[in-house]
């Protein structure tokens, strides 16, 4: 009978490193997303809706502000006609306050929504997390896996949302003004700020929403994680 290899594990564990290289982690996440497409589609949508709303509102305001600053007569005339050329400072401020308030409130609601989605997405895998820990995953591996996943989900969801938001904003604009007054360069200038900002914001939101359940799951004892019935 062969005796099993005896590896003393109490000393010098550095000789036998536990690891999960980033490249492998990304690969695992990618497979996870592919194999759970349906679920991820829902997550993408829930994030995209938030970002689309923000982008369309903010970019619309920004474009309008740019237009108002223009001194070309036809643009001023068009704005006047669409009743968008307010000279009333107080009214302007009022409008802006309302927008900010609306954005804050809806932002909070959306954050709760995304938190809920991410919590579901993590908690339905508690059992798998427990199994991974039995196979030798450190807490850090689990966090790394879910971090990559949430960044990916955040970026893709936000990008989709930003695209939808821009389209929405354009739709809003052309309903008010003739398309010829909206110059491509001016649009590019406003969007080059609001779109990256929205994608960054959306991703940050998603990662923040994922951190709490992921940390909780990673810290669970394997038995507790595996006992969770889904």
């Amino acid at each position: 009978m062969t005796t099993p290899k005896h590896i003393p594990f109490s000393e010098d564990t550095s000789a036998h490193k536990l690891m999960l290289p980033w490249s492998r982690a990304v690969e695992i996440c990618w497979r996870n997303v592919l194999n759970r497409r349906g679920r991820f589609l829902l997550i993408f949508i829930s994030i995209a809706v938030v970002v689309a709303f923000f982008v369309s509102t903010l970019a619309y305001q920004a474009v309008l502000a740019e237009l108002r600053r223009s001194d070309e007569v036809p643009i001023r005339a068009a704005l006047e006609q669409a009743n968008l050329l307010t000279h009333d400072d107080a009214g302007d401020r009022n409008q802006r306050d309302r927008t900010i308030w609306l954005l804050t409130l809806s932002g909070m609601l959306c954050f709760v929504g995304v938190c809920n989605t991410m919590y579901m997405s993590v908690s339905e895998r508690f059992r798998e997390i427990g199994t991974l820990k039995c196979l030798g995953a450190l807490d850090g591996f689990i966090i790394r896996l879910f971090l990559i996943e949430s960044v990916f989900v955040g970026v893709v969801g936000s990008a989709l949302g930003a695209l939808a938001g821009v389209l929405l904003m354009l739709l809003q604009l052309v309903m008010l003004l003739e398309i010829e007054y909206i110059s491509g360069i001016m649009l590019l200038r406003t969007l080059s700020v609001s779109v990256p900002a929205a994608i960054a914001g959306g991703t940050l939101l998603t990662v923040m929403a994922a951190i709490y359940p992921t940390r909780a799951a990673a810290k669970m004892k394997p038995v507790d994680a595996m006992r969770v019935e889904v």
Binding site: T13, L18, N35, K133, C134, L135, L138
Partner: peptide, 25 residues
Amino acid sequence: VYELAWLRCRKIGYIFQTFNLIMVM
């Protein structure tokens, strides 16, 4: 924690009633 994870990884193999495979793999 590190040594414990190492123990689970290298020293012990676990088999469960419910198999506990990773379903997406």
